[in-house]
């Protein structure tokens, strides 16, 4: 990598100017863990790093409408919980805890989303919670549904002069809970398959809303399985239904084959993990 310049802009307008000036060579730096992992593999050509450290984008703001995560919030800040009234956020806490301590302490919310990697854990959880990405550009902040942020492998839908300032998770109704599970070769590796599930259950035990998202190379981006959600919607969530949702999710994906696992293997694991994520989410429903 030819790293040709390191910039520490003082405000959003300066960030946008630098993004406009350097075009494809500009990379916004959060914690640097993803950028470093590309650089050591020789996957970056000429790069100018734009470090956001002077911008006040750190913090978790909880309001009645939901929780807003500043883009520079370290993933470590999400690893504790969920609190008693935050069970709907369970998937986020689960996913943050899967990162090794040293990565959790460096990696940022904005960076892990902007990377557009299907192998990362937190975006899978964010997608299960209908996360909305705030992208700052020259015309102010544009809100992007996180599912629409992902175009393909390492490819996001940000415009050249936009950068991520926040991820907002809308508060889920009473009776909601979520969970994230991951299957990897070891505690420090990327996911072979991961799954996040969120359910909302009414007083009679019927599922009124559900999200099922699968990560880790079952597609070129985190994959929302509407087929699995269709099985859950309106159903009573017994063992048979969860099993059927897992089967539907597995049928719904055409996974990648790589050095970590074959596509066929991932497909089988996806069904199991969806069932486990749903079981874990259900166990958290108050």
């Amino acid at each position: 990598m030819e790293l040709d310049g390191f910039f520490t802009p003082e405000n959003s307008d300066e960030v946008i100017e630098l993004l406009a000036q350097f075009g494809d060579e500009a990379l916004v730096l959060g914690g640097g863990t993803f950028i470093h992992s590309l650089a050591v593999r020789g996957l970056l050509a000429r790069v100018r790093l734009i470090d956001l450290r002077n911008l006040a984008l750190v913090g978790i703001e909880s309001a009645s409408a939901g929780v807003r995560l500043g883009a520079r919030t370290r993933c470590a800040a999400l690893a504790r919980g969920p609190s008693e009234d935050g069970r709907w956020l369970g998937a986020v806490h689960d996913a943050a805890r899967h990162l090794p301590l040293q990565v959790r302490n460096a990696a940022t919310v904005g960076g892990c989303v902007a990377a557009a990697s299907p192998f990362f854990d937190l975006p899978v959880a964010f997608m299960a919670l209908d996360g909305v990405v705030g992208a700052r550009g020259s015309n102010g902040i544009r809100e992007i549904d996180i599912e629409a942020l992902y175009l393909g492998l390492f490819e996001n839908s940000l415009q050249q002069t936009e950068f991520i300032v926040s991820v907002t998770l809308p508060r889920m109704p009473a009776g909601s809970a979520s969970a994230f599970v991951k299957f990897a070769s070891n505690a420090n590796d990327l996911a072979i398959v991961s799954a996040a599930a969120r359910v909302t259950v009414d007083a009679s035990g019927r599922c009124t809303d559900a999200r099922v998202v699968i990560g880790g190379g079952v597609a070129n981006r985190p994959w929302r399985s509407r087929a699995a959600e269709g099985v859950l919607q309106g159903a009573t969530l017994g063992t048979d239904t969860l099993e059927a949702a897992g089967d539907a999710a597995a049928s719904d994906v055409e996974p990648l084959s790589d050095h970590r696992a074959s596509g066929r293997y991932r497909k089988a694991v996806a069904g199991v993990l969806v069932r486990r994520a749903l079981t874990a989410a259900l166990a958290r429903v108050p």
Partner: peptide, 24 residues
């Protein structure tokens, strides 16, 4: 960022020092 033997504390938190750009 996979083996941990470069770990140091940065403002009290453990990080892989190989993955931290020093200018940051």
């Amino acid at each position: 960022g996979g083996c941990g033997c470069c770990t140091v504390l940065l403002d009290g938190r453990a990080v892989y020092s190989c993955m931290v750009y020093v200018l940051s």
